[in-house]
């Protein structure tokens, strides 16, 4: 069938974008969000407040708008002569957005750890850093895994927003083929691809979660 002769190579091309945006966002956002969560919980009121405003903006506006803002926004500032490239803008927007959501999840996770854990570390003369890395964070990760999993799945679907900057992900591939052949089949096909990706991720996330089931 002609449709698939065009659809499959284009989908594979598109997968590079979809998966690339997905992986880059996760790999950068997760460590960054732990730092942002700690800043949000900082004793320094100003730092906590600024971080709070950042999170508010990122969660209070659509990711689509953020993408447009970061890519097109600079073109409207005269004399600055600077703008991000498409791919840069995509990664920056996705990372900023997802870091905010993940930071709130980590903040909740850190807050839910019994104060006794911190105190036990304190009386054992452990440093703050060591306490966080070896005692607190492993317990936080276990607690927040289900919520992080949700965000990961949402991210897969959010990658489709890159169309607004004219980048060809799998959804854009489907659209092109659909227009060319006047058929709806590409959309069904790409829907199945999303489902497959989600199925694989769900399995991976379950495996990762069960890694932490050795204790309660």
């Amino acid at each position: 069938m002609n449709v698939f002769n065009m659809l499959i190579p284009m989908t594979i091309e598109g997968l590079r974008i979809t998966i690339g945006v997905f992986l880059a966002t996760l790999v950068i956002s997760i460590p960054l969000s732990i730092i942002v969560a700690k800043l949000r919980m900082s004793k320094n009121k100003i730092i906590a407040k600024i971080t709070g405003i950042y999170i508010y903006i990122m969660r209070g506006t659509p990711l689509l708008l953020q993408l447009m803002f970061i890519f097109f926004g600079f073109h409207y500032i005269p004399l600055i002569g600077f703008a991000f490239g498409r791919y840069q803008a995509i990664i920056i927007a996705f990372v900023l957005n997802y870091t905010a959501y993940l930071a709130e999840i980590f903040r909740g996770g850190i807050g839910s750890i019994d104060i006794g854990q911190f105190e036990a570390c304190q009386v054992l003369s452990l440093s703050k850093r060591f306490t966080f890395m070896k005692v607190i964070l492993p317990q936080v990760v276990k607690n927040v895994m289900p919520s992080i999993g949700n965000e990961v799945i949402t991210l897969v679907k959010d990658t489709s927003l890159v169309y607004i900057l004219g980048v060809a992900d799998i959804l854009k591939a489907a659209k092109s083929v659909s227009n060319t052949y006047s058929t709806f089949i590409p959309y069904i096909f790409v829907g199945i691809v999303y489902l497959l990706i989600t199925a694989i991720l769900t399995k991976l996330l379950d495996n990762f979660e069960s890694k932490f089931s050795y204790y309660r």
Partner: peptide, 19 residues
């Protein structure tokens, strides 16, 4: 306030190995 994610032995070793 034991560390729930560590075995008994690991609970004992953590601080001295750090210090």
């Amino acid at each position: 306030n034991l560390f729930p994610h560590m075995t008994v032995k690991e609970n004992l070793l953590l601080a001295p190995k750090f210090l």
